[in-house]
Amino acid sequence: MCKSASALSVAGMKNTAIEVHDLEKSYDGQPVLKGVSFAVGAGEIFGIAGRNGAGKTTVVEILQGLRRRDGGRVDVLGFDPGRERRRLRPLLGAQLQTSALPERIRVGEALRLFARLADGRTDWREFAEAWRLVPLLDMSFGNLSGGQRQRLFVALAMINRPRVLFLDELTQGLDPVARREAWQLIEQARDHGTTAVLVTHDMEEAERLCDRVAVLHDGRLVTCARPVEIASSVGTVRLRFSSPGAAGLEGLGRVPGVTSIGYDGATADITVEPVAVVRVATELGRLDLAPSDFTVIRPSLEEALVPLLNGDNR
């Protein structure tokens, strides 16, 4: 759990890029964020997950200074986005969930315009090539497909070589190949020192890309950890292996953490708590039942997150 931002620094991180303490925000008296705290390390890919209306987009908009907070403290690269947005802005890149470009602007014009707005020396053609936009340079924005628009948005978000990159629904509308290419480019940006904050519903993306994931529910942070930690902290693990008979399997029932044992005449299917995996393996070795196809099936991040997204953080 991320109760305080200071408790969230990640081992090995030299600096903190973003710190959020007790962030609060209401719309028309309706609280949207109720004391959210977390920290993001420099060079980290940090995911924010949650159901629709959980407050994810509001958090990233406040971090960019696009929205005023009602309470709490926010620090992005040493600046308060609410008061020092103009100074902070050149260091940020953003791909927003609901935004567009003028219908008649051409892809090449958009890239050139944003490159000029960001930094007169940026070579926009480099971004056009990296995001496979070269064949589309003369096409109007209004004629682009959803995936082509998304590629353009991400290219525009990165065109100022930001120190912190906010990506809201990064791969929405991208085909599987483009999705993986997007992941690679984000990882490349991270390798060059860019910190990325990724708002996503795609748990495969979070698991594959994020160093840590924060889960928001009803305006509160319910967990904040590495995807593998979240996946293993919730639910149970299944162990499957071939077994010539049921003899010996009964003994596993006495191993602490084993919750059920199944056997279909050829394969054993044992459900255990995550901490019991090693104990079961040890016990199998002691019983001289060391199967060569011993498989540990952990819950996916999505399976682990569903109860959290429903507000069950116990």
Binding site: Q64, L66, R86, R89, P90, A94, L96, T98, S99, A100, L101, P102, E103, F114, L117, A118, F153, L156, N160
Partner: peptide
């Protein structure tokens, strides 16, 4: 109105314009 409706102003604002 079209810029507001479609989020063009928001996109420019996120880029510091």
């Amino acid at each position: 109105a079209s810029y507001r409706e479609r989020g063009v102003l928001r996109r420019f604002e996120a880029f510091g314009v």
